[in-house]
Amino acid sequence: MMKQKNVNKRHLRNDILLIIVLLLVAATGAAYLFLFRGFGDVVKVTVDGELYGVYSLSQDRTEDISTGEDGRQLNRLVIREGKAFIQTATCPDGICAAHRAIFRNGESIVCLPHGVVVTVTTAQTQGEPDVVV
């Protein structure tokens, strides 16, 4: 009985340690993302890993990202007041459309069903002016 109690105590201590470590890892990641990356100036759109287009965040615009074999899968990307978000999408879950607007460097909106990834980045890291649409 005494032995079982000690085992339970040890388990509880390990549980708490595990949870603290996980939350610390998350906090470190969050601090890195928010403090050290700053703001981006362009959004890069990729479809299934291939570049679809790069759009400046400083210019308001609406862009329909069409994917799928017949191009009927749509995600409407809206850039307004320096932030980017998906306004509407034809994907079944609509998670991308529910996602809040992004503007910090490295932030992204992902539409898993359509394979669309919208990521905020800086123009310098994108380099080539010929890919800026």
């Binding site: 949870i19 996980l22 939350l23 890892v25 998350a26 990641g29 969050a30 993302l33 990729t46 299934d48 890993g49 490295g106 932030e107 992204s108 992902v110 898993l112 394979g115 990834v117 990521t119």
Partner: peptide, 18 residues
């Protein structure tokens, strides 16, 4: 998706998973 830029999700999902 051939992208490594999902770090933000990992942070959120670590807390949520915990």
């Amino acid at each position: 998706l051939e992208t490594a830029e999902l770090g933000f999700y990992l942070v959120v999902l670590t807390v949520a998973g915990t």
